[in-house]
Amino acid sequence: MSVHLPVAAEIVERIQESRDIFTLRLRRVGPDGPLRFDFAPGQFNMVYLRGAGEVAISIVSDPDEERFFDHTIRAVGRVTDALAALAPGDRIGIRGPFGTGWPLREVEGRDVLIVTGGLGCAPVVSVINYLFRRRAAFGRIAILQGVRHAADMIWRPRYDAWAAQPDTEIHLAADVSAGDPGLFQGTVVELFKRLDLAADNALAMLCGPEVMMAAAVAELRARGFADAAIYLSLERNMQCGNGLCGHCQFGPLYVCRDGPVFAYSAIADWFGKRGF
């Protein structure tokens, strides 16, 4: 598959996740039927809607799923609003997959902490799904997730099922909990107080607004996490996805190609610096 030319993908299912978040379940179509699409969790596609444009969207389904792949999208503007109006049978263009994935090999046999906040849930949900499908391969799993409003907490039943698993802790927060007893009213960073996971043998994976991730990095370092044991997924304006258009420059790095998942040790010099 060429990174320079989209291929057609057909929507096999459309799932409304919340008021403005929806999932497109897709399958690549070739002249002789469906084609397999290989990717690693954490990677993204450039999703093209004809006539409207291309947007960067993470891939959230399981990499071993052969029949389809999923994009979970929040309708925020021109292209994503138009994508929201599509229905099963419609076709879109896909270029990808692009970028680095989460360090899933490195984390085998170790403890995992996932911190996610704001609107940034999609890229990390693929990891959570991945871990629980292969639960025995990992040590303790802890998830701290914050959202703005209780209504943004999609996939609640999945979290409840995961929370019931052994050696697992899940803490959920919302700036506006709207009376939901399962949600701590506050920010995801405040959830660190409740965390019961030692840094010794753990990797942390972070995704969400950069101010949130910066605060989480400070918490993690204070708890003894090494910079190389903290991974973050970054977002920048993206036009090409493959290191050519220059829009996603981050210091001397390209977020699309060198990221979007980075070890904190690789970006510590620029992360949180205004203007990078």
């Binding site: 093209y48 004809r50 444009g53 036009q239 220059g246 829009h247």
Partner: peptide, 18 residues
Amino acid sequence: FCSSHRAEPALDGLSGSQ
């Protein structure tokens, strides 16, 4: 070398270019 990309649909909406 920076560039931006845009969709240029034909009037019929059935063809176009990037």
